[in-house]
């Protein structure tokens, strides 16, 4: 028997063994990694219905959605005007107010600072609302305006708007 064909055969066997071993290992690891993602019951808690009939103009409420606080504010006329007249070219994360609300007076936001995840102040009447009359994150000093947009501080993005819809005039479904 000559050397050459034999060593080719051996190379082929080695390579295919290694490949099958690698694929097998990856297939074995996948379920373990996947098990660490949110479970089905966690995903199932994805929607919350909120009654907003009792919120007066200028008031805010905080509800829990997917374990996170969601801010629902009934904005005053002044707050709406303030949010609309901002020149969006000046913003760190440029976004028109109109694209952040479904109805002008209702502002719905995920109340989690986009910097490192703290809950900004500004929900209670006694809270500091920051330099732009919206919300202020005490952890690392981010200021948000009356549309929940980042105006000053380390946060890279505006407060997120969760997916939501008006079921009727007095009920919002978040998620």
């Amino acid at each position: 028997m000559s050397e050459k064909p034999d060593s080719k055969r051996r190379d082929f066997l080695q390579l295919s063994t290694i490949s099958i071993g690698a694929v097998g290992t990856a297939a074995f690891i996948w379920p373990f990694l996947k098990s660490m993602n949110p479970a089905e019951d966690t995903l199932a808690l994805g929607t919350t219905e909120v009654d907003i009939s009792l919120i007066e103009e200028g008031q805010s409420i905080t509800v829990k959605w997917r374990g996170k606080p969601v801010f629902i504010r009934k904005r005053t006329k002044d707050e709406i005007d303030e949010a609309k007249k901002v020149n969006i070219a000046d913003l760190k994360d440029p976004e028109e107010d109109i694209n952040r609300v479904k109805k002008d007076e209702w502002l719905v936001l995920v109340g989690v600072c986009t910097h490192l995840g703290c809950v900004p102040l500004g929900q209670k009447l006694t809270d500091s609302k920051g330099a732009y009359n919206g919300w202020y994150c005490p952890c690392h000093g981010s200021h948000y305006d009356t549309s929940g947009r980042i105006r000053k501080g380390p946060a890279p993005e505006n407060l997120a708007v969760p997916p939501y819809s008006f079921l009727n005039d007095t009920t919002i479904k978040i998620g």
Binding site: M36, P38, K68, V112
Partner: peptide
């Protein structure tokens, strides 16, 4: 982040 937490926020998982 979600994979590390097993949830959308720090929770029981």
């Amino acid at each position: 982040k979600t994979w590390l937490l097993g949830d959308y926020t720090v929770g029981n998982a």
